[in-house]
């Protein structure tokens, strides 16, 4: 296996209508560096997939994009990340509105121990998005519908969210994110804890969401990347090795590491 030496990313890391722009990002956990000089654009209304062997820093990079890494004391982020041209690690940027604009769905479904309704209404209530109960009801219904969950739960909105099946829980978490009306949705292996049928539903959903939202999804399944994304970024040991349109990446990878990964020689 070739050891990665140069930091040059193969392929096309930059786009014209960038929603999120990352430049020379380095991330450290204490003394240990997890991300090495990564530069990448996420275009508006596209789905970009982040792939790579486990431990290569996909989650770490994703969590930089809405400053979720702030919650880890020892984590330090260097470099520039811009949302619509605004630097998000700037002192003047408040994480609260940032995270309202850049939502996140996690690997393991994590509904709050509240009713389905309250799970979805949680964000709008925090941010004061609805002034009346009617408005709030509308937001909840819309979000659940966008997440494809409305028909399954509309009769039991008062039931606890934790009582749903795994796939439903994950769609509830997506609905919860949509309810805040974000611009970007980050997804960290959203299907890894789900069965194939639930996975298919979520993948379908991601495809639909693309028209309104910019989506960055971490996945370790190449098939999933192929099915849902337009562009794919391949990470290896904290470095961004290659970024290309998904089809091209899976047919004619530029970098030998990418090829090795895609053909299943490691992962």
């Amino acid at each position: 296996m070739t050891i990665l030496k140069n930091h040059d990313t193969k392929g096309v890391a930059f786009v014209d209508d960038a929603k999120l722009t990352a430049r020379h990002v380095n991330v450290f956990y204490g003394d240990k560096q997890a991300i090495f000089d990564v530069s990448l654009d996420v275009g508006a209304n596209e789905v970009i997939a982040l792939i790579g062997p486990s431990g290569c820093g996909k989650s770490t990079f994703l969590r930089c994009l809405n400053r979720m890494n702030d919650t880890i004391d020892r984590c330090q982020v260097q470099g520039d990340i811009l949302l619509d041209g605004e630097p998000i690690y700037d002192g003047s940027m408040d994480v609260v509105p940032l995270r309202a604009r850049v939502g996140m769905v996690f690997q393991k479904p994590n509904p709050f121990p509240k009713s389905i309704y309250d799970n979805v209404a949680y964000g709008p209530r925090l941010h004061g998005l609805a002034t009346t109960r009617v408005e709030l009801d509308a937001i909840v219904e819309y979000s659940l519908q966008r997440a494809g969950l409305w028909n399954e739960v509309k009769d039991r909105l008062d039931a606890p969210g934790t009582g749903l099946s795994g796939g439903q829980q994950q769609r509830l978490c997506i609905a919860r994110t949509i309810a805040v009306d974000p611009e970007v949705i980050l997804m960290d292996e959203p299907c890894s804890a789900l069965d194939p049928i639930a996975t298919a539903k979520i993948e379908e959903l991601i495809d639909e969401l693309r028209e309104n939202y910019t989506i960055a999804i971490v996945t370790h399944s190449m098939q999933q990347a192929a099915r849902v994304s337009q562009r794919t970024a391949y990470f290896h040991m904290g470095q961004l090795v290659e970024v290309n349109p998904t089809e091209q990446m899976f047919t004619t990878p530029e970098h030998t590491l990418t090829e090795a990964y895609i053909t299943g020689r490691f992962g």
């Binding site: 604009r101 609805a130 937001i139």
Partner: peptide, 20 residues
């Protein structure tokens, strides 16, 4: 989504002072 004169971003910004 709901017909309100304010965008989501404005609503969030508006709530910030109180929440801080």
């Amino acid at each position: 989504m709901t017909d309100s004169s304010l965008s989501t971003r404005q609503k969030v910004e508006r709530s910030l002072a109180r929440r801080r």
